[in-house]
Nucleic acid binder design. Sequence first.
RNA 1: GCGCCGGUAGCUCAGGCGGAUAGAGCAUCGGAUUUCUAAUCCGACGGUCGCAGGUUCGAGUCCUGCCCGGCGCGCCA
Length: 601
Amino acid sequence: MTPPPMKSTLVELSDRVAAAIVEVCPMPADQVDAQLRRAQDERFGDYQSNCAMGLGKRLGIAPRALADRIAGALTIADLCDPPEVAGPGFINLRLRAEYVAARLAEIPPAPAAGTDRLGLAPAESPQVVVVDMSSPNLAKELHVGHLRSTVIGDCVSRLLEFAGHTVHRVNHVGDWGTQFGMLLAYLRRTQPSVLERPEALRLDNLEEFYIAAKALFDADPAFAAESRETVVALQRGDADVRAVWQAFCTESLRHCHEVYDRLGVRLTDRGESFYRDRLAEVIDAFHSAGLAQVSDGATCVFLDGFTTRDGGPLPMMIRKSDGGYNYATTDLAALRHRVHELGADRIVYVVGVPQKQHLEMLFAAARKVGWAPDAFTLTHLAFGSMLGPDGTPFKTRTGGTVKLRDLLDEAVERARRVVENDAESGGRRADFDAVTIDRIARTVALGAVKYYDLSHAMGSDYRFDWNTMLALEGNTAPYLLYAYARIRSIGRKAGIQFDALSRETAITLSHPSELRLAKKLLDLGDVLKHVTVELRPNLLTDYLYDLSKAFSTFYDRQHGVRVIDAEPPALRLSRLRLCDLTARTLKLGLHLLGIDTVEQM
RNA sequence: GCGCCGGUAGCUCAGGCGGAUAGAGCAUCGGAUUUCUAAUCCGACGGUCGCAGGUUCGAGUCCUGCCCGGCGCGCCA
């Protein structure tokens, strides 16, 4: 029997303040807002309520006096020191060490297998969520432009899963379209054996293949004609062409999944071709709802608030004048499929900022035709572009696109240099063997790339910079991974099994650095909740960095405390438990970001 | 032209619903080492939050106008 999860500190304090307001002010309880915030400056305590200023104004009472009355009515001694009123009417709250220690002591030991939840309960109302992510075009190699969608999509999927939701990670791959005619025609020419042994098809460099096909297409009218015929044959369902197409897609997806595997990202491929039998239904649905009109031969849906360059109404085109469908049609079909067949309650599109208008139109159309009722949540998680160090679009020196696998290769090489350099100069870690160094380099490299991406605010562009992301100082993956490895080393050195530390190991918090670390640890639940509701991974990276800093100070020989050789034994165990909780929190946080840890570094 | 996003310290970036003296990292400078992993820690320096108005007890945050940069705007996706 597990006891019911306790309210978060933030919610608990908020409730207490709200109760005090009701006691002091003549107003209904449901109109009370405690306005409880985290204090931004330690001098003011841990939390503050800003309710008195607004309320005082409304009720015609001096804010300061009202704050005094609310503070006087507060029953909060089990959580905080006596509240203090300051400034124009802030009510400042400071948590008591005993409360913090007691809350941390409740955290159950890590489970032998599965994700360590650190005692955090899942959401009360689980949903089915589709995360639309990565979505490369199969005609080309995965390039750096796919990194953000893949990494962010994986992270929000992990966050939502941790919160108890059922997540479908859908890779909406572009496996259909006119350019496939050219590719398939070229494939038949260059590798005629593809029909006999489709499973043997290997295209080592998709990029070069595409470029060669395009070159021939542009140079040779006969080939261009053949390409166009191939598109028609593919759409018609011609068996031979279908087989070539299938072989090409399989081979192309193999390339993609090599990279996904390296990134540790799992997702389900669902090509645009999957929806092609459902496209006509989309048109029908809009027609029968009276929402579709034909304009210049194309079938269009006109939505309020969208205008063209000339100020005229901007349609969402769902069928071209030549009878073909376009991506709006496919996206609508996919949305409908996710709602009606996958049973989704929500779709999160991890798609770049430039597609904002398209998604707004998609959402508006889906609402209008009734596929997405009000209770259904449609989220465009829009991310900015990854720029080169000079602030221009990320390209190779020759101006080409950078393949994602090349980027990851370089990351590993650079991380290896960071790890090896130190082994040579420092001496102390020189005993790492080649296999260990290799493993550390890979983990640090991937972690650095992902962490740097996730630590930026989602919507803004960011500059890619190797030195910053691989630095051992600052808000970086290497710093956090080092902090984690260091703590794990403490456990080994102390000759203790962290997992054996039970709830019975009491926690005492006497030193300022201990208390500060403990309060950070206690924040985890509120932070994760906030991060998950807002889908903002950078709030989680900031928290983990703060936590690591708090740990480093706690463990500092001058500003912190002794741990392994602390006396008496109960104090030693208390501090070791803080170490363990820090490591577990770091591991969980990094895990939710999609980053692995190393036990030594 | 219309719309969206951005402009915050020398550089890279954060800044819940409007709250106290606008934060962090890097860089620079100064301190701490008989190493529980110093790959660390502590401190200092550094700002007209693009500009100008407005709203109010209070504006980096909300409103209006303007300047600069990026992106989007019917048959590509």
